[in-house]
């Protein structure tokens, strides 16, 4: 939904629920009038104020330069978190199943049931191995993401002092 501001009130955003681009500025003016009624703006300053003085503000306009990088970093860490969780969940199961693989190296004849067990174990080991690979890949790219987030979390000097 469109948002508007103006030179007269740069700190205020007038957001309207109207997708008609010709009508939306009128609804923004209605919101402006609301603000004069509650005393946020002075009505006298806006007699004759025109919709042509409104400036449409897009979501892109509202983002800081590094905001896109930050969003990407958060996504990367979210991926790492999911991968780590999966690895932890599958690890114990995979270790238990790896014992069944040992059967292949014994000098004895295997029964059909034992082959079936081995196949199932292989499938579980595969799932763990895939999750582990993804985790390692995510971990590599997460280093940079962590640095971006650390920077974003750093407070200004004055705030640190406070």
């Amino acid at each position: 939904m469109p948002k508007y501001t103006a030179a007269q009130f740069p700190e205020i955003l007038l957001e309207v629920q109207c997708s008609n681009r010709y009508r939306a500025p009128f609804f923004a003016l209605k919101k402006l009038v609301d603000l004069t009624r509650v005393g946020v703006l002075d009505a006298k300053d806006f007699d004759g104020f025109s919709s042509q003085s409104l400036v449409e503000v897009t979501n892109e306009d509202l983002m800081s330069k590094n905001e896109e990088k930050l969003t990407k970093a958060i996504k990367t860490l979210a991926k790492l978190s999911q991968a780590k969780k999966l690895v932890q969940e599958k690890q114990e199961e995979a270790l238990n199943n790896s014992k069944n693989i040992e059967m292949l190296f014994l000098d004895k004849k295997l029964l059909p049931d034992e082959f079936k067990k081995i196949e199932e174990s292989l499938e579980k080991i595969k799932l763990f191995a895939q999750a582990n690979l993804r985790y390692k890949e995510a971990l590599a790219s997460a280093e940079e993401a962590k640095l971006i987030i650390d920077r974003a979390l750093e407070l200004t000097d004055s705030e640190n002092e406070g």
């Binding site: 009508r23 009038v33 025109s50």
Partner: peptide, 24 residues
């Protein structure tokens, strides 16, 4: 009088667009 929003308050000949205005 009070401040009221008025649709089609003025036709802007340059941009060929209707301007809304807030008016007392």
């Amino acid at each position: 009088t009070s401040l009221c929003p008025i649709e089609h308050a003025k036709f802007n000949e340059e941009d060929k667009i209707w301007e809304s205005q807030t008016l007392l």
